[in-house]
Design a binder for these strands. Structure first.
Length: 304
DNA sequence: TATGTATCGACAACGGTTCG
DNA sequence: CGAACCGTTGTCGATACATA
């Protein structure tokens, strides 16, 4: 069983995600498949390794023991993978397709790692999620990083990282604001039809906030454009009677929040979250480069 | 009672092996 | 070589079960 690391990898993801179904989304396989693999391990070891509990899963004593073994194996495999990549002398450039926010704000943090890992150049093509998936099907790119899965056969979608939208302004805001306060701001928005605008609208709608009643000062068709518009707007209270605000991915504004050129506020009782996805063609899941880059991205380090 | 989650069973796709 | 077979691994739909 140890020779077949796939099952132990599933076990590790279940432990990390504390859930069978979340693990299945991370792995890009169905939830019954995860159950089967864990069951296989339990039958093989003739012992229960995971307690299925109400709020997530918990390891048994034997499960803990298996975990330390699996972690040790995982580390060994990662270093072995690095070494085996050196054998492949193929000289080419690996093409990643990414949607705007990912390509501009998240990927730069891990590109170096990926290049180092596969010993080759990496090109990033930035476009809308739809066009990225199109390019993936046409084999113009090797891997896609997108904001929402556009379900197609022969493509594996894996939940990659969780993103959160944050409310921010170029003037200081209270730590938290109430829903009603949103009507007292001047807004800069993405255009209708953008993924960002859609998610924000839907989420706010769910908690009873109608975005169409906002005082919208500007509509800008890119995250970067929205951010810069807010940065350059008149400041509250000196230059404007209302603070100018926008909602964007935390990855877009994190640097500006740290250096205080922008200020964040939380909306009480409202979490604006979304999942970002990694996708590749099913028949390329055994490609050394697709496989290595995916695991490099999935291990989720250096995302800033 | 509605919802989320784990499990079961039937079945399909795929890869490897065997054999003519 | 290719047809037949077999094991593995996955999907889907149904169901059981616990929890809010």
């Amino acid at each position: 069983m140890l020779k077949d690391f796939a099952k132990l990898e599933t076990f590790l993801i279940v432990v990390r995600e504390r859930s069978f179904s979340k693990a299945s989304a991370k792995l890009g396989i169905s939830q019954p498949a995860v159950t089967q693999q864990i069951k296989y391990i339990e039958e093989y070891l003739d012992t229960k390794i995971i307690e299925r509990k109400k709020n997530g899963v918990k390891l048994t004593k034997d499960g803990e023991k298996l975990l330390t073994i699996a972690l040790r194996l995982e580390r060994a495999i990662v270093t072995a993978e690095k070494e085996t990549m050196k054998i492949i002398k193929k000289d080419f450039s690996f093409n990643i397709g990414a949607s705007f926010t990912i390509g501009n704000y998240i990927l730069p943090n891990c590109l170096g790692n990926i290049k180092e890992m596969i010993k080759n150049d990496v090109f990033v093509k930035i476009d809308s999620s739809d066009n990225i998936i199109e390019a993936l099907i046409e084999k113009k790119i090797d891997l896609a990083l997108i904001e929402s899965p556009i379900f197609k056969d022969n493509i594996v979608y894996r939940e990659w990282v969780e993103d959160e939208f944050v409310l921010f302004s170029n003037s200081p805001l209270p730590k938290t604001v109430k829903k009603e306060d949103l009507l007292t701001f001047s807004w800069i928005c993405r255009e209708w039809g953008s993924n960002t605008r859609r998610i924000i609208n839907e989420t706010l709608d769910d908690v009873g906030i109608d975005c169409t009643t906002f005082d919208i000062k500007g509509v800008v068709s890119s995250s970067t454009g929205v951010k810069h518009t807010v940065l350059k707007s008149p400041k509250f209270p000196e230059e404007s009677p209302k603070p100018t605000v926008a909602i964007l991915s935390k990855y877009v504004v994190q640097d500006d929040l740290v250096n205080n050129s922008l200020h964040e506020s939380k909306i009480r009782g409202c979490k604006l979250k979304r999942k970002l996805y990694l996708a590749y063609l099913k028949d390329r899941k055994n490609d050394a480069f697709v496989d290595t880059v995916s695991s490099c991205l999935m291990c989720n380090k250096n995302l800033g």
